[in-house]
Amino acid sequence: MRDNEENSLPAGVAPEGKIEVPAGGLVLPDSEKGSLVNAWSLSLVGAVVVLTVLCTVWPDPYLEILCFVPEGLLVTFEVTILSIICAIPLGLITGLGRLSHNRVINLIASTYVEVIRGIPLLVQIFYIYYALAKFLQVSGLTSAVIAISFCYGAYMGEVFRAGIMAIPKGQTEASRSLGFNKVQTMVLVVLPQALRTIVPPVGNECIAMLKDTSLVSVMAMPDLMQYGRSFAAKSYLYFETYTIIALIYLIITLLLSKAVSILESRLNYYDKRK
């Protein structure tokens, strides 16, 4: 049973040990192609130009909308950053738990992943904020961070598991035969190597997380989306408001995806020298 699990690679891992970009995630810009005209720069320049043109040619209402939402952007960032800080360690622990040979730990980690993956994030947010309020009350921000990091912790657990499993078994065997114990082997030998395959998909998850924070507006959290909805509800300018909101989200995620790709190319330093 256990051997079987180890032999079959989890979904998302190609045999060469490269992790494929999960469906629905952003395509990370390929920094190795140095050309100026690629999908990433085209999207960014397009978004910035459209935003600038809209705000200069029709300051009423576009500039007005743009000036209305910055406070919401701060809340969006706050929720995203706190969630990332909580989700990455949670993902690592879950990933290690899923690989553990201890049946109890393995079962707990696997059950957590199965349960959380099977419940939509919106339902989880409602559940933590409104349903659990019967027993314990947490603020909007705390609920948002708990819901998002629990959800993404489960997703990231699978990414960490895949990344660790992609490291050839020989590495562990060599390390153990040189006298490292299990923890040392994992921390000093396996994880540093796994990091290179793990970082791009984890970066992707973080970007997806930023986009999913727009769901917290259902608990009246004043994030970017909530400010947009509030403006639209007051002015009845749905097209104009959501155009601006979409452009802002797009520009932020494009910049973040660039950051992830730079980080990725730094980690692939040794690959390039080959």
């Binding site: 309020a133 009350q137 259902v218 009246a220 004043p222 909530q226 909805r229 509030s230 509800a233």
Partner: peptide
């Protein structure tokens, strides 16, 4: 605070 429905706002008031 702007809720999706007044019922959710009332619930949060009670809570």
């Amino acid at each position: 605070r702007e809720y999706d429905s007044v019922g959710l706002a009332m619930q949060d008031l009670i809570n």
